[in-house]
Design a protein around this nucleic acid. Structure first.
Length: 567
RNA sequence: UGGGCCGUCGCCAAGCGGUAAGGCCCCGGAUUUUGAUUCCGGUAUCCCCAGGUUCGAAUCCUGGCGGCCCAGCCA
């Protein structure tokens, strides 16, 4: 565990957990769960919940966190997601050991418990249509009305419910409802639906069930059945807590424990959306390449982009846990990323927009081996070799004929250091006679400057380079945010999202060169291209030249200065 | 005009009646063969507003204002 992950901050949830343990509540046990619905890929918002739930468990002696698929809606869920979710949670660095559960694994128990509720007069079968049900519910400001089926006898309810289970009724013809209070100011308490008829194939239970429990009914009971002590969820479930408690209270005799639901605010991140529905729209509309497109905030997208699990964990720790509505700046995520990558990533040189440079002082055919440190601060990362020869490439923007003030790169007649190599001077600029475009530079090098600075003069600039003959062609994909506005969730109403899509979210550079040591870098491996940023080898197989994804740029104070209007 | 929740620096976020932590961003400066990293230093007399209680309030009380969530047989 890295330094930045040493001491998790004590947020209000951890305070409650600590106080409960001190008070001896739940015999000191701390059991949490991460309960995703397998209807999409996990994203950065889920990471917050995963880090919280697994984190709280890990911080407490004998604490445990279960992974439980909340699979009560077969219409929306798929086996595919079950696999990807497990991959992502493991990748993030968490382990549920042998505690992998499914809400569907409790279907029989949930059914029996429902019969108990009916027998105790707490639930009834309602035969109102969906539309009628809506009318009877009332509105935010007006109370609802009691269903005409509300006072069916226990025997009738039991009979009907059993027949629902046997599959005797068509979808939508009946539901099982809790008998609570149609006049409650909390709409969730107006006789909420517990079971619906759905003749649908379930990815886990097959065609065993023609009825399925709702979230409100299943979630609290699964928690209780698993011995969850602290059921952590996002703020929108706050209004459901009275129902959660109501159900568990009615069935307490059969359950034995009563988990405590605690809500925290969900993550919202600048310039991105974190809603499965909206992410799905981006995928379906072809705006992105898939759920793992490097621009997506999904864990699979972030992984492909080059984000590390440690960076995401640190991020989740730094944003904290609270109930405040938030919109976290991208800068914080990127800062966590750079912090981790700076330590981890071996350095290398790559030129994204090559400009040919002929070193006239190096004879044709001469090659000199140079060695370079893989990390400037960490000698343990070793050395690699580079080859110095007559023709090299430098970055086009590292040369300027008419430089702005403070420009410390290469200019006509001026000197710069080539990183890990010699100081060169630009003697001649070669232009295309037709277009006037600069096609090459003729430079001379100072052979005394390999590991030493010239004693008689100061060379301010250092630029990166690759040997023309020894470097390899690669494609580089550079990314920007998917949206042009910092709060796309607010702007995105209905299907107007196209107007907020950033047309420059992907830039493909096909004429890049990387140094020789990167020739066979495996997919997923990540490097710092010096002076440019962090880049990783794309993990999707490609035919043709290798593809590098730009994970994130280096902090660039020069670029920032250039953009700013003077004064 | 129903109910629930939230409001501390540009963005997160501590604070739990004793006189505003920290991180990110930002601004200086030092070191640097990455305009990177690292390192120093700076940045809320004030905590949505207005009253009140108190020797003392961001923390307690009252009243406002602003924001978010809820009317799926979704989760």
């Amino acid at each position: 565990m890295s330094r930045s992950e040493e001491s998790p901050p004590i947020d209000f949830i951890r305070q409650i957990v600590a106080a409960d343990r001190l008070a001896g509540k739940n015999d000191g046990r701390v059991v949490t769960r991460f309960p995703p619905e397998p209807n999409g890929f996990l994203h950065i918002g889920h990471a917050k919940s995963i880090c919280l739930n697994f984190g709280v468990a890990a911080e407490n002696p004998a604490g445990r966190c279960n992974l439980r698929f909340d699979d009560t809606n077969p219409l929306k869920e798929e086996e595919l997601y079950i696999q990807s979710i497990q991959t992502d949670v493991r990748w993030l660095g968490f382990d549920w050991e042998d505690r992998l559960y499914y809400a569907s694994g409790y279907f029989e128990q949930l059914y029996q418990l429902a019969e108990q509720l009916i027998e105790a007069g707490h639930a009834y079968v309602c035969s109102l249509s969906a539309e009628a049900l809506r009318e009877y519910r009332g509105t935010l400001t007006q109370p609802g009305r009691e269903s005409p089926y509300r006072n069916r006898s226990v025997a009738d309810n039991l009979d009907l419910f059993r027949r629902m289970r046997r599959g005797e009724f068509p979808d939508g013809s009946h539901i099982l409802r809790a008998k609570i209070d149609m006049a409650s100011p909390n709409i969730n308490m107006r006789d909420p639906t517990l079971y619906r008829i759905l003749h649908a194939h379930h990815h886990q239970t097959g065609d065993q069930w023609p009825i399925y429990p709702t979230y409100d009914y299943a979630h609290c009971l699964c928690d209780a059945l698993e011995g969850i002590t602290h059921s952590l969820c996002t703020l929108e479930f706050e209004d459901h807590r009275p129902l959660y408690d109501w159900i568990v209270d009615r069935l307490q005799g059969s359950l034995g424990n009563h988990p405590q639901q605690i809500e925290f605010s969900r993550l919202s991140l600048e310039y991105t959306v974190v809603s499965k529905r909206k992410l799905n729209t981006l995928v379906k509309s072809g705006i992105v390449d898939g759920w793992d497109d490097p621009r997506m905030p999904t864990l699979s997208g972030l992984r492909r982009r080059g984000y590390t699990p440690a960076a995401i964990r640190t991020f989740c720790q730094r944003i904290g846990i609270s109930k405040t509505p938030n919109n976290v700046e991208l800068a914080l995520l990127e800062s966590c990323l750079r912090e981790d990558l700076d330590k981890q990533a071996p350095r290398a040189m790559a030129v994204l927009n090559p400009l040919r440079v002929v070193i006239t002082t190096v004879p044709e055919g001469q090659v000199e081996a140079l060695s370079a440190a893989n990390h400037p601060q960490n000698p343990e990362m070793g050395l690699r070799s580079l080859h110095w020869s007559r023709e090299i490439f430098i970055e086009r923007e590292d040369f300027c004929e008419d430089p702005p003030k403070q420009f410390k790169r290469l200019v006509p007649g001026g000197e710069v250091r080539l990183r890990q190599a010699y100081v060169i001077r630009c003697d001649q600029v070669v232009k295309d006679p037709q277009s006037g475009e600069i096609v090459a530079l003729h430079c001379s090098h100072d052979p005394a400057t390999l590991h030493a600075n010239p004693p008689d003069r100061k060379v301010k600039g250092v630029i990166h380079w690759v040997s023309a003959a020894h470097s390899h062609p690669v494609e580089v994909r550079s990314y920007e945010t998917l949206f042009t506005v910092p709060h796309p969730d607010e702007a995105w109403q209905g299907d107007n999202f196209a107007e907020w899509i950033n047309p420059n979210s992907l830039t493909v550079l096909t004429d890049c060169r990387v140094e020789e040591s990167l020739k066979d870098a495996p997919p997923g491996s990540i490097f710092q291209f010096e002076r440019l940023g962090y880049f990783c080898v794309d993990s999707k197989p490609t035919q043709g030249i290798p593809v590098f994804n730009r994970t994130v740029g280096l902090r660039d104070t020069w670029a920032k200065q250039q953009q700013e209007p003077k004064g």
